[in-house]
Design a protein around this nucleic acid. Structure first.
Lengths: 185, 185
DNA sequence: ACCTGAACACCGTTCAAGT
DNA sequence: ACCTGAACACCGTTCAAGT
């Protein structure tokens, strides 16, 4: 039963959660320091204990988003793991369309992002691409997938139905296949 | 000469020019209404004669940027025209890296953007792709190119040298070729 | 017709002060 | 240790008033 307002304890992940929820519900512009604080029953100034400034909060949001994309089941076939990864990114973008456009703006520097990159390179090699070409191809495939997914999240394809966009996504998958074929020895 | 401050006459393109110059020199965050006004020797409030609000000013910036990309020489071979278009977009991104990330966020709705889209569809058809598949392929190729170019402008590839990025760009061109091959009847 | 002064309701951020 | 009140230097935007 409540009683007097006990001091509120928050940590960084609470700040990120609150900011993400506001972005999802009301858009990126509504993510202000005081709105995030308010959602946590805390003043805007309290956030500065957990984020350096607002830009850092936004960076954290992007990292959290990407880190939420699940890793594929490593027992499945390599090409299927690649598909699972791509679908996971597209799902995340659909859940959090307001935040996704920030994604291409900065290199992903978290451990998890590096692990995912290493995994993709490894999968590409398993598909027959020589090591010397694998990381270039990883960059290009990730760029194609991210480009599509942020375009969709940000509304660049808004005049096309879901059915059309799903068929586009499938066609992009075939282009990925062709690019792998192209890079095999 | 000069004398007393005569009233300053400005129009929309002046506003866009000034905003673009500020974005190029000091970054997107420095594009404030009052900074743009100051650069034109005018108050911030005067801008509202020419743009509905700040979001509209930013939209105008993106349109101006894309509209500045030259159309290719139509007497050249179709595949060369495609390359020229892609290189033109990459050059524009290099000149205005701060503004480019806004580009994937909204569908290009200007007449010039539509004309360019129509041109690309036409070039793809000339390369042997049936009409029924040409506009899908246009979307995917534009997405690949834009994804690469905003990644580069926004610094996602900042850890790689210009030489590596140029080779990436060339490899992307080969993937575009493969995607066209894939869609021919 | 076009621009501005003044005002409004916000921003992000700092820092001394509270508990 | 952690949070806040007060304050600062800005924002974008409206609107009546000036020329």
């Amino acid at each position: 039963m409540g009683g007097m307002s006990r001091p509120r304890r928050i940590e960084r992940s609470d700040v990120l959660d609150a900011a993400l929820a506001i972005a999802d519900e009301e858009g990126l512009d509504s993510v202000t320091m005081s709105a995030v604080g308010h959602r946590l029953d805390v003043s805007a100034m309290a956030l500065y204990r957990h984020v350096a400034n607002k830009a850092n909060l936004l960076d954290g949001l992007v990292e959290r988003l990407l880190d939420d994309v699940p890793f594929p089941d490593r027992s499945r076939a390599p090409r299927e793991q690649l598909t699972a990864l791509g679908d996971g990114v597209r799902d995340a973008a659909r859940r959090h369309p307001a935040v996704f456009p920030l994604l291409l703006a900065r290199p992903a520097r978290t451990d998890r992002a590096r692990q995912r990159r290493d995994l993709i390179v490894d999968l590409i090699r398993q598909l027959g691409v020589p090591a010397a070409r694998a990381s270039r191809l990883e960059r290009l495939i990730s760029t194609m997938v991210l480009g599509f997914v942020v375009s969709e999240a940000a509304g660049r394809f808004e005049m096309h139905s879901k059915r059309v966009r799903d068929a586009d996504w499938e066609a992009l998958g075939q282009i990925v296949d062709a690019s792998i074929e192209l890079h095999r020895r």
